[in-house]
Design a protein around this nucleic acid. Structure first.
Length: 427
DNA sequence: CGCATTTGACCGGCGC
DNA sequence: GCGCCGGTCAAATGCG
């Protein structure tokens, strides 16, 4: 206002007009810059908030899983507490959990230091160790179970796989172990007509080979969410059953992951860690880790996860084709729908994994036969109980299964190359 | 035109 | 040393 008065009182009108316009332009520019800065700052804050919410969501998901496992265990312990005491399984489990907890402790310089990295929360009798809110924790989630003195403690260590460092914890793992973990592999077998299962990550195909003993070509992908991400995966159709897609993951991500990808990444890392924990019997070439869910007839166990020592690299296989799980009924917190990848899904290229497996069975069998399948709660209870022997890995597997089911509603694979499809010519 | 995929070449490990 | 095999590279090709 003052400026206008001064200018209008000057002698040169044309000069004054030009100056006024310049001043107005400068003012508008300054205002716009200020506004832009404000919006940028607000945007930054919102992103931080969103990131924090995602982390909290992951933490809560894993806590729910863990609590449900504990609940299941409590119920079973009430049903047959004597059996465990008589056959000594209770003691054995405690030993296992001691090992798990020791593994966790070993990852830090000492347990005390590790624990001080977390806030603690009490839910019932369970102590939860959460990452500090005010730090950019590379841990998506850590959880320690009940105190040792109580019935089977469960320790869930979820390597974030989303960041290069684990804030003073990974730094204590010697490099050889880290290298070994990188070489450890996790295979996922799932029924899918799509060329690739949706795991929430973005992949770029960098090669394809015909592998010996399988007429279907093997495709090689690398993660493209970060330029330096070391994660690779191989996708190949099963020779025996070409409706089954075998996806093998290697390495862990060194960048933040979308929530939809967290479960799989966690599974990979947890499996790798577990594989190297020495918990598997050396005498067994193929050791069925867990998931020996007994079906309703009580005859044939359904293997869900197995460890292979015969493969060139330590490999754990999750066989989702055998999980008799209809859709969303698994007692696993399905990921919220808003965590689904944004890419629109075409009609047919959706991964349905477990769900499709079940649908196929229903399509091939009569209703009566289908009803003979183990009911889900029954099967999952057995699975959960057996998994509890290695709870570190349990939560990750369960989370991965839940994630798959949540994604079953439709997500396009990153590319639509048909692996093993007749129209696809191998090398 | 830029980017993703394809595919032949290349490399290293392993067994003989 | 040689061949086989799995894995990766990179130029060519295709596609939107």
């Amino acid at each position: 206002m003052d400026l206008n008065l001064q200018i209008t009182s000057s002698g040169s009108d044309s000069y004054a007009d030009g100056e006024i316009k310049d001043e107005q332009t400068n003012n508008e520019r300054a205002i716009l810059c200020t506004e832009l800065n404000r919006v940028s700052a607000e945007n930054h804050q919102l992103r931080d908030l969103l990131s924090q919410l995602n982390r909290n969501c992951n933490v809560l998901q894993m806590q729910v899983v863990s609590l449900m496992q504990q609940q299941e265990h409590s119920q079973r312990a009430q049903i047959a507490p004597k059996n465990e005491i008589i056959n000594g399984r209770g003691e054995e489990r405690n030993n296992v959990n001691d090992i798990v907890e020791r593994q966790f402790m070993d990852m830090g310089q000492n347990g005390k230091q590790v624990k001080t990295d977390f806030d603690t929360r009490m839910i019932g009798n369970t102590t939860l160790y959460l990452p500090h809110r005010d730090t950019n924790e590379s841990w998506d989630m850590k959880r320690l179970g009940k105190e040792k003195s109580q019935v089977p403690s469960q320790t869930h260590l979820l390597d974030s796989s989303t960041t290069p460092k684990l804030n003073g914890i990974t730094s204590d793992i010697d490099q050889a172990t880290e290298a070994a973990i990188r070489r450890a592999r996790v295979s996922v077998k799932a029924r899918s007509e799509a060329s690739m299962i949706s795991d929430g990550c973005q992949w770029r195909k960098y090669g394809q080979k015909m592998a010996k003993g399988n007429p279907c070509p093997r495709a090689y992908y690398r993660c493209t969410m970060s330029a330096s991400c070391p994660v690779r995966k191989q996708v190949q159709r099963c020779a025996e059953d070409r409706s089954v897609l075998v996806t093998t993951y290697e390495g862990h991500h060194n960048h933040p992951l979308p929530q939809a990808a967290v479960a799989m990444a966690s599974t990979t890392t947890s499996a790798a860690t577990m594989l190297l924990s020495g918990s598997m019997p050396s005498s067994d070439p193929n050791y069925f880790l867990a998931g020996a869910a007994i079906n309703s007839s009580g005859t044939s166990p359904i293997s869900v996860a197995s460890i292979s020592a015969t493969a060139p690299f330590p490999t754990i296989t999750l066989d989702l084709t055998r999980v008799p799980a209809p859709g969303a009924q698994v007692p696993v917190p399905a990921l919220p729908s808003n965590t689904l990848p944004q890419r629109a899904a075409p009609a047919e290229s959706t991964f349905s994994g477990v769900q499709r497996s079940h649908e196929l069975r229903l399509g091939q069998q009569s209703r009566d036969q289908a009803q003979k399948l183990p009911s889900l709660p029954e099967a999952s209870r057995a699975t959960t109980t057996n998994f509890a022997a290695d709870s570190n890995f349990t939560a990750a597997i369960v989370a991965a299964l839940g994630s798959f089911m949540a994604m079953g509603s439709g997500h396009q694979s990153y590319n639509d190359t048909q692996i093993g499809n007749p129209k696809f010519s191998g090398k």
